Computed example of a mutant assay.
Amino acid sequence: MNEAKGAMTVVEGNPDWKADVSLVLNNARHKRNVILRTTLDRLGLWKSKHNKNVSPFKSSSSQSQKQAAIIDNEVWVFDVDATRSSDIVAAVKIAMNYYKVSADVIIKDVYTKNLNAECEHKMTRQALVEANKGLYFNTSKALVEAAKTLGVSGTLNFWVFSNNKNYKIPREDLHQSFINANAFNVTTDTKRHIATSASNDATRLLENAITHLHLASFNL
């Protein structure tokens, strides 16, 4: 292929509303030709949630037990808990094997939209904020650990789409979670963006909502 320029995502849902991995600060764009998308759900549950019929492909990557599929010419890996570095490593290895690239092409830019704790309706609003702070903290730590395990050095950029006034985790709390995870730089794009997101159970859709792009950078 041409020069490999990649990115990955965590906690994807419906591929119709996947995270835009080309967007960077100041409304600029970086073209990506190596894309790994990961989702927490197992393949069967994911297909039933989103009414999608895709077939897994067999990966020879390190005898991985993770199921994967090619959707719109991108690698998707299922049953990936983004707070577990071992799951992230397994997913990256599948994509490395498929695209024939090194790990640093894939994992140095990671995107997600609105990480949100499960069972949110059983929590008070403040408890949900604290749970989501923990979720972003643990995901950040797992990404860094996974990148180091894969031999990647330099900087890992974690890009997050989340409205500054998101009541589930306002900007200040989101940024604090990154700082607590040892980010050396945390910033928010001055531009506003439009994105569509679904609830964890895929029963509710927030269409064309205003969101903001945050960047947390970590040393590897």
Rank of each mutant, 00 (worst) to 15 (best):
K93V: 04
G13W: 04
K66G: 07
A103E: 07
L23A: 04
S62Y: 12
S55I: 06
E3V: 09
V160R: 08
I71R: 07
T139F: 08
A202N: 15
K66T: 12
I179A: 12
N164F: 06
A103S: 13
L213T: 07
E74K: 09
S162I: 09
M123K: 15
K122A: 12
N208L: 08
Y111G: 06
S199Q: 08
S60E: 09
A216L: 01
A19W: 01
V110C: 10
R37V: 05
P170I: 15
S48H: 06
H212Q: 05
G154S: 08
H193M: 10
A117E: 14
N116C: 10
S55P: 00
A131G: 14
L36V: 09
L43E: 12
I70D: 04
K108E: 02
K108A: 00
D109A: 11
E12Q: 13
T83H: 02
N33Q: 10
L205E: 14
R42C: 03
S85H: 04
N163P: 11
L40H: 05
Q126P: 00
F57N: 06
N208F: 10
L206Q: 10
L206A: 14
I94T: 13
L45P: 01
N200R: 09
S217C: 00
F161R: 02
K133H: 06
V10E: 02
N138Q: 15
I94V: 15
T112K: 02
V80M: 08
L215H: 02
N208Q: 12
L215R: 05
A131T: 15
A28G: 10
T112E: 08
S102N: 09
S177C: 08
L143G: 04
L205C: 14
G134A: 00
L156D: 00
F158S: 11
A103M: 03
S85L: 01
N26H: 09
V77W: 07
A7M: 06
N73C: 07
N33A: 09
A127E: 13
L150H: 02
K49R: 11
L40R: 05
L115T: 06
E3N: 13
R42Y: 07
N73F: 03
T196A: 10
M123P: 11
R204A: 14
Q126W: 05
